[in-house]
Each structure stands twice: as structure tokens, then as C-alpha cells.
Design a protein around this nucleic acid. Structure first.
Length: 545
RNA sequence: GCCCCUGUAGCGCAAUGGAUAGCGCACUAGCCUCCGGAGCUAGUGGUACAGGUUCGACUCCUGUCAGGGGCACCA
């Protein structure tokens, strides 16, 4: 029994196209999809509709010829034991209906191999670096960072699961203006603690945590010049702890300070200069990014001799490629969207393709409390932090909620809803399905044997459930293509729904022992898929709730 | 002014260019002697507007309207 039926069917279709002499027309466009609605078979293709235009013939006759050829080939091969029928439906779609045995075998594979049966090698070990969060170590992580953390980590898990070699990286902005201001802020608070009357500038860091750092700095007798680094270290420890508590762990913490010391920035500049991408104007050094798609050229060394933030970023991204990664994914906040063209221009200047870098703009999440939006202000330190969200709703609900909407869309996160233990709260709906399965499995003594007869699973809800289970692979593939993991949350809700429907109509623990055994196998399969999906989201799988 | 995101049922959202646009909340009517009712079944109700591309558009393009966010030799 072939594991990848889709590939087998594609080969079959290709053979027919070659035989009919139509292959030349659409080799690039050949596709085979799983219909979203299983009314239309288990696989469908629209290629007769596509061919209709190219051959200038009605789609129905093309589809009929194709189906004729397909049926002949199927009848002559092993596929006759797999495919129930192929037929033309609707406007000219060709739909494949698989035999139930196929689904039973797939279910058997899942329950015997577990998650191994679900992994794929689509990524073919391509090395991908996902950079996300990368918040300046000048304050606690905000909700915006929290969403990025959830999305980035989940995306990393999904890509690793489908065969990529994935590393997570946090770019650490540990020097520069913001760190200087941080140090100065702590310095002023320190003086204040020592009884001095101070004028505290508006643009300094206002949060109470600055006092905490000042007290520690005072105890340890940190010198004024080192306050910035000390404070950044102090805050970084907090950030790392928060991310760890959120289940997000980075492989690399890439220090901007180290980058500056390494000489890689100057090296990058000289390479750009050789290629003719740099010029001087009005006392500043400019990067000629317009020739690579940007709307204006960008300053990289200001007229006062200091670098702009673009300078290290150019070197940083080139260094990512030098380190051996061939696909870069950056998650940025919406305030950076104008920055995408610049950095894409930069990687192109070094000879990389623009599509080797995907910049995903993670839109903001607005926190609601009792239906009222909570305003945020980073400087005042009055924003809601990741820590507060975790303390209020827990890791599972927080992760699920941050992943529930398309990453490029705004997200409303109501803390009260996330705390509810009801159907309004989707994470509970999914976990409830899991716990319910565990409960049933606990209450049965029947062993699920490998050679178990699954053909007794004939009810519509049973077959629907198996088909839904097999949809995980498609879902993960969509996540990969769209570079967005949110579809997984939708899928898990749908799978849970299919399970609840099945459960409501059919008893698992039945008088008929062979039926009971088969149904136990069925729900064990659902359990494996749910566990897999929840794990990819970074959410626990409670056996009891 | 320019750029990004979003307009789908009373509310919150879903639908890798595909066939009869799905789900939750709310509302209405039902389902527990039985594996977890935190569940299930049925009903009400919808693609902002105007064009275009396509065999086919919630989806892509143009414009209009509405909401949110962003546009430094700041990071």
C-alpha cells in the first residue's frame, strides 16, 4: 500500500496526459487536491478545465477522454484495488474516489507507527533560520512580542516536522542608543534613591522596574559607565526566563555588540563598495538600494560618523547566509514593514535571491479585558506584559489565542474569554476532545492488535473522522507554503468537532467486541493526531481535565 | 500625502482561484437508565460598494467608502 497516494495518482494522471499528447500544455500546472468537502471524492483535479482553454475544446469532452484513459490504466494496474471510481463532476472536475480499504490501511499505519507516520520530508533538510522576538533588552516583553514568540516557535516546530532543519534565533540589540538611554535612566533613578532631586526626561524609560535595577546596581556598586550593560543583562535574564516559561527556546542569541566587534560590518561595507552599491553624499554614506527595488536610497553611516541601525542589519543578514542557512524567515512587527525592501535589497546586493528571505509581519494583538481594549505605551511601562498574560490565562490558552488568527491580521485577545472553560474557548474544546478519548481508552481492557479488523468501521462519521485525520498533512503543507501556522488551530478545532460528532452518535464501548476494538483503534488514531497537533502548537495534552 | 492590515449572519471569526460560503456566541426547538452534556442535533441569518481578469472570485487587479496601524541621518 503506497504511503503517498497523492504522488501515485499524480503519476497516473501524468501518464495519461503523455499518452493523449497533452502533457506539453500544462506540466507546470498539474495539480491534485483534496477537496475541502468530501462530497467530491477524495482527490480532485481541475486540469480538464485548464486544458479546455489551451486546446480550445469544451471541458466536458476533455474530461471524458481523460477519465476514459485513467480508467483503462487503473484497470490494468494494482491501483484497481485502491481506487473505487474516477468520474467527471460539476463543470468538468475529475474526481477520484478511493476504496475504504485505503483509509483503513492509513488508520492502521497511524496507530502502529504513531507520529512517525505523520512526518514528511518535504523540507528535504533545507536549513532555515527563523529570527523572531528580538526585542531590545530595555523592558519586559509586550503582548506584541508574545504573539511573535508564539508564531515563530510554532512555525519552527511545524517546519521541523515536515523535514526542514530549523534553528531559532533572537537578535540581541545590546548596544547603541537605546542601551545608553537605559543606562542613563537607571543612573538617574540611582541618584534619586540616594536622595538627589532629579529631572527625569520624557523619553527615558519610565517603568518601575528601572528602580529595581537601580537598587541592585547600588548594592553591587556598578560604575556609572557600566550601568547600560548591567541593566541590559539584568533585563535579558528576565526576558529569557519569560520566554522559557512560555515554552519558547532559542538556539542562538545573536549579539549586535559582538557583531560590531567582529569586523563583519566593515567587511560587508567593503564588499558592497566593490560591487558599487555605496556612495557618499552630504557627508553621509548611502546604500544604493533603489537599484534593487527600494523606493529611496538609505543612509548607513550618518554625517556625524555613527552608523544607522541598517548598517549592522545588512551585515547581520549576510552573516546568516554565511553561517549556512539557505532560507531566512524574519518575524517583524508592523512598524517594520517599510524596512522589508531595504533588507531585501541588501541580501540581493550580496547575490541572494529575494525569496531566500521571507519577512512575516506579525500584526498587533489588542488585549481586551471585559470587552474593553487595554491601551499600551511602551515608554511608560504601562503595557500588558507577556508575564501578565501568562499569569492570567496560562501558557496553553495564550499560545492558542495568539495563533488563532492569520498572522498578518490584527488579533483581539480577550483575557476573560481565554479564561473561560466553555465552548467559547477553542483550546478547551480541543483539549476536551483529547481528555475524553483518554477517558474512554482508560475504561477499556481490550488490547488493540496490529492485525485488527478495521473494516467494521462503516458508519459515515467513522469514515469522515479518518479522512479528517489524514487532513493533518495537507494542513501542515499549507502552513509551510503560507509561512503561517495559524491554519493548524483551525484544523484541530475541525478534527475535534468530527470526533465529538462521531462520539455522540456511536458508542465506542459496544456489545460487539470486534466493533469496540475497531472503534478503540479509531479514537486512538484521533488521539495521536490531536497530540501531534497540540505538540506542534506547544500546548499540553491533558489526559484529564 | 504615501505604505501596510482589515471589511463575510446581531457579535467574534473560517474557507491553499473551484462545486451548495462553514464554525462558535446569542436567539428558537430538541438530545443524558448508557464510554466525560466542557458535548451533540435542527432552525433563523451573510461575502461594504462599483468595475475588471477568469470556464469559475470571499479569494487576484483597479477605484470608492469605512476601521486599525505605520511612514526619521530613531531602534
Amino acid at each position: 500500500m503506497p504511503k503517498d497516494i497523492q504522488r501515485v495518482l499524480l503519476d497516473l494522471v501524468r501518464n495519461c496526459l503523455v499518452q493523449l499528447g497533452w502533457w506539453e500544455y500544462l506540466r507546470e500546472e498539474l495539480s491534485l487536491e483534496r477537496p475541502t468537502d468530501n462530497r467530491f471524492g477524495d482527490f480532485t483535479t481541475n486540469l480538464a478545465l485548464k486544458l479546455s482553454k489551451l486546446l480550445k475544446r469544451p471541458p466536458a469532452t476533455i474530461a471524458a477522454e481523460l477519465v476514459n484513459s485513467l480508467q483503462k490504466q487503473i484497470a490494468e494496474s494494482e491501483l484497481q484495488y485502491l481506487i473505487a471510481q474516477v468520474k467527471v463532476e460539476g463543470a468538468g472536475f475529475i474526481n477520484f474516489y478511493l476504496k475504504e480499504d485505503y483509509f483503513y490501511e492509513q488508520l492502521r499505519t497511524i496507530i502502529t507507527l504513531g507520529q512517525q507516520a505523520l512526518r514528511s520530508d518535504i523540507g528535504s533538510s533545507r536549513k532555515v533560520l527563523i529570527e523572531f522576538v528580538s526585542a531590545n533588552p530595555t523592558g519586559a516583553l509586550s503582548v506584541a512580542h508574545a504573539r511573535q514568540a508564539a508564531v515563530g516557535d510554532c512555525l519552527a516546530r511545524v517546519l521541523a516536522f515536515v523535514g526542514f532543519e530549523v534553528k531559532r534565533e533572537y537578535y540581541l540589540n545590546d548596544e547603541g542608543n537605546q542601551i545608553n538611554i537605559l543606562g542613563a535612566s537607571v543612573g538617574l533613578r540611582l541618584k534619586e534613591l540616594q536622595g538627589e532631586k532629579v529631572e527625569f526626561p520624557e523619553h527615558y524609560y519610565q517603568g518601575d522596574y528601572i528602580y529595581d535595577i537601580a537598587r541592585v546596581a547600588q548594592d553591587r556598586k556598578i560604575s556609572l559607565a557600566d550601568l547600560g550593560d548591567f541593566a541590559a543583562d539584568y533585563i535579558l535574564k528576565i526576558i529569557k526566563q519569560e520566554l522559557n516559561d512560555f515554552g519558547v527556546n532559542f538556539d542562538f542569541w545573536y549579539s549586535q555588540k559582538q557583531l560590531a566587534k567582529s569586523g563583519k560590518i566593515e567587511e560587508a561595507f567593503s564588499r558592497l563598495k566593490e560591487k558599487g552599491y555605496l556612495y557618499e553624499k552630504e557627508g553621509a554614506l548611502w546604500f544604493k538600494s533603489t537599484v534593487l527595488g527600494d523606493d529611496k536610497d538609505r543612509v548607513i553611516i550618518k554625517s556625524d560618523g555613527n552608523q544607522t541601525y541598517l548598517a549592522p542589519d545588512i551585515a547581520y543578514h549576510e552573516d546568516k547566509f554565511t553561517r549556512g542557512f539557505d532560507w531566512l524567515i524574519n518575524l517583524w512587527g508592523p512598524d517594520h514593514h517599510g524596512y522589508i525592501q531595504r533588507i531585501k535589497a541588501a541580501i540581493q546586493a550580496f547575490g541572494h535571491a529575494p525569496e531566500d528571505l521571507d519577512v512575516i509581519i506579525v500584526q498587533l494583538a489588542t488585549i481586551f479585558r471585559n470587552g474593553q481594549p487595554v491601551q499600551m505605551s511602551t515608554r511608560r511601562g504601562q503595557y500588558i506584559t507577556l508575564r501578565e498574560v501568562l499569569e492570567e490565562v496560562g501558557v496553553d490558552a495564550a499560545r492558542f489565542f495568539f495563533l488563532m488568527r492569520r498572522t498578518s491580521s490584527h488579533l483581539d485577545f480577550d483575557l476573560e474569554v481565554a479564561k473561560k472553560q466553555s465552548a467559547e474557548n477553542p483550546v478547551f474544546y480541543v483539549q476536551y476532545a483529547y481528555a475524553r478519548i483518554c477517558s474512554i481508552l482508560r475504561s477499556s481492557q481490550i488490547q488493540i492488535r496490529d492485525d485488527l479488523d478495521l473494516t467494521v468501521l462503516k458508519e459515515k462519521e467513522e469514515l469522515d473522522l479518518i479522512k479528517k485525520m489524514l487532513g493533518l498533512a495537507t494542513t501542515l503543507n499549507i502552513c509551510r507554503i503560507t509561512v503561517d501556522p495559524y491554519m493548524l488551530t483551525v484544523y484541530l478545532q475541525e478534527l475535534s468537532e468530527s470526533f465529538h460528532k462521531f462520539y455522540d452518535l456511536h458508542r465506542v464501548l459496544d456489545q460487539d467486541l470486534s466493533l469496540t476494538a475497531a472503534r478503540l483503534a479509531l479514537i486512538k488514531g484521533v488521539k495521536i493526531i490531536l497530540a501531534c497537533g497540540l505538540e506542534l502548537l506547544g500546548i499540553t495534552q491533558p489526559e484529564k481535565m
